[in-house]
């Protein structure tokens, strides 16, 4: 778990750097939020009992806040809300045997 979290921190750090310095030069810069996409994907595809989605939301949001002009917590709250929302929806309304087995 610690390894996974460490990997997540590194991943979101580089994703945020890419987003704020590399993709800024492209015309789709306003549409692309890599951190958000990865957080949503992790939350969608992780096992239900796993908490990695929440950690990813926290660290992704933290790095986005660091490299943006918003107050610290802006993106953390948004991403945490999104990941909790996804988890709730998956828990209450979605039944996929393949995913539940994972």
């Amino acid at each position: 778990m610690v390894k996974k979290i460490f990997f997540l921190i590194l991943l979101f750090y580089f994703l945020t750097l890419l987003q704020t310095s590399f993709f800024l030069h492209f015309p789709f810069r306003h549409l692309l939020n890599l951190v958000l996409i990865i957080v949503v994907l992790i939350n969608l595809f992780e096992a239900r009992k796993e908490k990695l989605g929440l950690f990813s939301a926290f660290f992704g949001g933290f790095f986005l806040d660091i490299f943006s002009e918003n107050f610290i917590g802006f993106w953390i709250l948004i991403l945490l809300a999104i990941s909790i929302f996804i988890k709730l929806i998956l828990k209450k309304h979605v039944r996929i045997p393949v995913i539940s087995r994972v």
Partner: peptide
């Protein structure tokens, strides 16, 4: 908060520079 931001900017600036230049060239 400012200290934290400053710390991250400091350690990220070399990587950001590389990303910035590469992005600029590719775009």
């Amino acid at each position: 908060g400012k200290e934290i931001k400053n710390f991250f900017y400091l350690i990220s600036s070399p990587i950001q520079k590389i990303f910035w230049k590469t992005g600029n060239k590719i775009s």
